[in-house]
Design a binder for these strands. Structure first.
Lengths: 235, 235
DNA sequence: TTTTTCAACTTGTATTTACAAGTTATATTG
DNA sequence: CAATATAACTTGTAAATACAAGTTGAAAAA
């Protein structure tokens, strides 16, 4: 007997058709009754599949009209997921490493609670300065637990996304996270790093990202120069 | 004939019971069959209501066990969805209306693009100042299209969530949105309103929220005093 | 006593049927 | 020709029913 439910099967089929471009943005999916006929399901089952597609943002429905394909949002932005790279679009983002990844003990004062396993493993520490159109915009300080990351301190992070490296070489995926935002006055050090005008504030972000590995969270502190750019988020 | 659908009615009842603490975190809701009996609906209708509660993060379900309340862990926060009320927890948030809802034309200079229908309908304008522990924290300016909102300028918004009123009385649901964040120097007016220390910056947010009604978006400009509080977001 | 079995719950999936309500193109009417 | 009515679609809501699958605690067996 087939293990996966029928509505799930239809969901996967339609999802694949949407992401591979069989149905494009604005296209109407076949009507519910057509889908019933083609895939030999009843309407509640078909609607269950379509509801899932709505929930995941692939389509929206309009009564009397049909199910309309929604283009996936590409500029996900720093506020929803992943790193700073996807917030701007990688094209214009350059990265300078101020502190190459080194192994350290966790700081005494740390804005987040960490687990026992994370604590006893020590952490990988790195600092980066990131440029948009050759002007400094982000300064970030990162702490990553030193759990099963062979050779990470030898890798080059120049102009590469930290998250891409973790995903490709260590199979670590970001699942979600939490963050706090404030507007603060910059220190002298920060003002120089980010080339800020006197009196201009910075956006301060503390974030914890959870991953597919248990007890493996990524902790970042980010200072953002919002003179010319704003942080963008979709949800 | 009752205009709102039954599953919606049950959703509102259970949602209210959860946020007012009738059911607390970890509590089991009555079983689907019990809800059927009490509210005289069939199980598909009850399940539709429960599905909506799952989608909005109020409960999660476990097969064989029941529907479990999820409230306090999911302080959704201003960055992900809904309004400022859910960012803090309604308990400590008081609202003072600086400008009662009035009908206006849309401003000439507006940070977002608006549709033709929105433009020709005019907008409802309101300003609010919101307090946490009796200290001013949020100042927000809101523009809502004046489309099919009978008597909205007569309603009281004191200490009530704008979104709750839109949802309960006008069946308007927030589906998602986009926003931009900056750290800025406050104007003199803002410094007085938010009782800011000299030299302290504010967090500036521009947001557009999309709803289940076409051509009906909510536009807000928010100034946030981040001296004592931070804006929190989960994703 | 401890372990196993099982009955009585829970939610999950699915069918069938019916009518309400919004959309659109065509045919009808003025 | 232009406005209107209508028929044929679409999705939305809802009932009644059935069985599958996970959970739990009590009864039965070791």
């Amino acid at each position: 007997m087939n293990n996966i439910p029928q509505y799930r099967r239809l969901y996967e089929i339609l999802r694949k058709h949407i992401v591979t471009g069989v149905y494009k943005e604005g296209d109407l999916l076949p009507s519910e009754n057509e889908l019933c006929a083609v895939y030999e399901m009843t309407r509640p089952t078909v609607r269950h599949a379509l509801d899932s597609l709505v929930k995941d943002g692939f389509i929206f429905k309009k009564q009397g009209k049909g199910s309309i394909v929604r283009k996936p949002s590409k500029t996900i932005g720093i506020l929803s997921i992943a790193g700073t790279a996807s917030a701007i679009g990688v094209r214009h983002l350059k990265t300078q490493i101020l502190q190459k990844p080194i192994v350290k003990i966790w700081p005494e004062i740390f804005p987040f609670e960490i687990s026992e396993l994370e604590k006893e493993s020590g952490c990988i520490y790195m600092e980066r300065l990131r440029f948009v159109d050759d002007e400094p915009v982000f300064y970030d300080v990162n702490h990553i637990p030193n759990i099963n990351l062979p050779r990470i301190t030898q890798r080059s992070f120049e102009n590469r996304s930290l998250f891409d490296i973790l995903r490709e070489h260590y199979q670590i995926e970001i699942l979600g996270g939490e963050q706090q935002l404030k507007a603060v006055k910059p220190t002298v050090h920060l003002r120089k790093l980010l080339n800020l005008k006197p009196g201009h504030p910075v956006l301060y972000i503390e974030r914890k990202l959870t991953t597919n590995k248990e007890n493996f969270n990524i902790y970042s502190t980010i200072y953002f120069n919002s003179e010319k750019h704003a942080i963008f988020g979709k949800f």
